[in-house]
């Protein structure tokens, strides 16, 4: 039986059987891993305070084969990100992000670059707890989540010909995953999303900026609506359904510019 030790973020916890819990963990180098914590609901000593959503843990897991369900042997709490529980908007955005990662992060061991995804998730939970979540932060955070998941939209050059986008406005093709130049925007039909170059520039900066500094980027009014629409449609295209936490997040952020 192989043993696995390292850091993990709890993405989801569900009760299983009489006394067990099943947890979805995000781990560096591994990605998303489902583990069963035997007797977790009965024992006060085995996993004290650790198996809760958002928690950053050090875990020890045993697995029979790489594809098997892991057995959680030990979980030590490193950080519970308490700030995320102490504000409705913080909780809503963190829940949304965690659900997105739970649905989209590759299963254990099948994809490269999981360190980057884990680092993003860890930083994002910290930053959401420190900043005041609003529509702008949601938009940037979601864009950066897609980037960390390996689904970065092309915002620099036309996805068809490679030319840089020019003009006050260009088209964004959701199925093609990026912007189109002026020529291809004209030929692109009515399914394209119209985006100002200024909005694209801010989205490009958001991809480069450190999460902690996202608040410095200005995005409001029409540009915020455009950016949110691009990111939202991109998300819906790749996900194919509405996340359960989406409605609560929208209601929580309503009225917060």
């Amino acid at each position: 039986m192989a043993s696995l030790e390292g850091e993990a973020i709890v993405l989801r916890v569900v009760e299983y059987g009489e006394s067990d819990l099943v947890a979805h963990l995000l781990m560096p180098e591994i990605g998303r891993l489902t583990v069963i914590a035997k007797h977790a609901r009965k024992s006060r000593r085995r996993f004290p305070g650790s198996l809760d959503i958002f928690n950053h843990l050090t875990v020890r897991i045993s697995r029979r084969r790489q594809s098997d369900l892991g057995f959680l042997e030990q979980a030590i709490l490193r950080s519970p990100f308490l700030n995320l529980r102490h504000g409705v908007r913080h909780y809503a955005l963190a829940s949304y992000l965690v659900e997105l990662l739970d649905r989209m992060a590759p299963e254990a061991g099948v994809a490269p670059d999981m360190d980057r995804l884990f680092d993003f998730a860890l930083s994002a939970l910290g930053v959401i707890g420190e900043l005041e979540p609003d529509l702008k932060l949601r938009c940037f955070m979601e864009l950066k989540a897609f980037d960390a998941l390996g689904l970065r939209p092309e915002l620099e050059q036309c996805v068809r010909c490679g030319d840089p986008p020019r003009g006050p406005k260009v088209g964004f093709s959701v199925p093609e995953g990026g912007v189109l130049c002026g020529v291809h925007s004209l030929a692109g039909g009515s399914n394209l999303l119209s985006v100002h170059l200024g909005t694209l520039r801010v989205l490009r900066q958001a991809l480069i900026y450190d999460l902690k500094h996202l608040g410095r980027l200005g995005l409001s009014g029409e540009a915020l609506a455009e950016a949110s629409n691009v990111v939202f449609r991109f998300q819906r295209f790749h996900l194919g359904f509405e996340l359960k936490s989406e409605r609560f997040l929208e209601e929580s952020l309503r009225g917060v510019a």
Binding site: I53, L243, K244, R247, F248, L249, E251
Partner: peptide, 10 residues
């Protein structure tokens, strides 16, 4: 309790 990922809202 509030649990957005389970669809449990206010």
């Amino acid at each position: 309790a509030l649990s957005p990922i389970d669809g449990m809202g206010p």
